[in-house]
Amino acid sequence: MTRTVYVNGDYLPEHEAKVSVFDRGFLMADGVYEVTSVLGGKLIDFEGHAKRLERSLHELQIRKPMEDAALLEIHRELVARNEIEDGMIYLQVTRGAPGDRDFAFPPAETEPTVVLFTQAKPGLAESPAAKTGIRIISIPDIRWGRRDIKTVQLLYPSMGKMMAKAAGVDDAWMVEDDHVTEGTSNNAYIVKGNTIVTRHLGTEILHGITRAAVLRFAQEAQMKVEERAFTIEEAKQADEAFITSASTFVMPVVEIDGMTLGDGAPGPVASRLREIYIEESRRAAL
């Protein structure tokens, strides 16, 4: 079945979807994006993603293309048209194509480019990796300084995933000034005793929507949470580790730079948080 995608107000077969070669997202990586998961045909954490989208647009001085209600309707329409039961919806907003290539920003009232498409992921919540855990390596973090903005500048995270693949593992954590910032496409956590440790919010990391939900659920479950930077060496000595993202939910980490954590199996904290997150997200889905 050919996917239906959304481009600037139109629902189109994917092979007919086009944007201008002068679009600043293409020429300058001048745009932002969000990925919203779908479970059982319903959207997970849509409100959080919409709020973060608005913040990213504001930080880059890109005009918000529509109100949240209209954006929600597009998401729902794509889920229906593409018969998505489990999967994801990718949303990208760029500054648009105001004219010829120029480093200078066009006027703020320039019409942005809006693109959405779906990706079917049957059994998204039943990932086999959640039962075995994933292995990661550490790499230097050499990205720009505003990682709190969810831009389409994803070349280095893509390179990081390829470094992990070349090393025969699943993913990578990025390290700056001897401390872990985040994963290539996820937030990073360790567990020491009864305490969950994850880096504090700032411009160094993306303010994860799944991160916010998981930390809230952890505190409601009487788990202790400590928001601070931690080193790779500290992570190697941890009892557990895990990552969170919209597409992986809560995913246990069982090996860091070749060192096995605990007994090499997903730990009880990460496993329990995954159960809680999926259960609560299904219940609150739109």
Rank of each mutant, 00 (worst) to 15 (best):
E59M: 13
W173I: 10
D148S: 13
R135L: 06
P268F: 12
S245K: 10
I89W: 00
A246I: 01
G202L: 05
T132W: 04
I136M: 14
V175S: 07
A97M: 02
T4G: 00
V225P: 01
L206A: 08
E126V: 03
V7F: 05
L60I: 08
A188L: 02
P122M: 11
T4N: 00
N82A: 03
V115M: 10
R282A: 11
D170Y: 10
A229W: 03
I136E: 10
L154F: 03
P252L: 12
T210I: 02
F22Y: 14
S20W: 08
A221Y: 09
D257G: 13
T2F: 04
P266K: 11
I136Q: 11
D263N: 15
I190A: 04
G193K: 10
V21C: 05
G264C: 11
T184Y: 12
T244D: 06
E67G: 15
F26A: 07
V254N: 09
M174Y: 15
P106I: 10
E234K: 09
R135A: 14
V250F: 09
F217V: 01
L39T: 08
P98R: 13
E280C: 07
E47N: 12
E109R: 10
M223K: 13
L206F: 09
F26R: 05
V180C: 06
M159K: 05
A188H: 05
F22R: 12
E233F: 01
A17W: 03
K121T: 06
A284K: 14
V175I: 13
S138K: 05
P107N: 12
H200D: 08
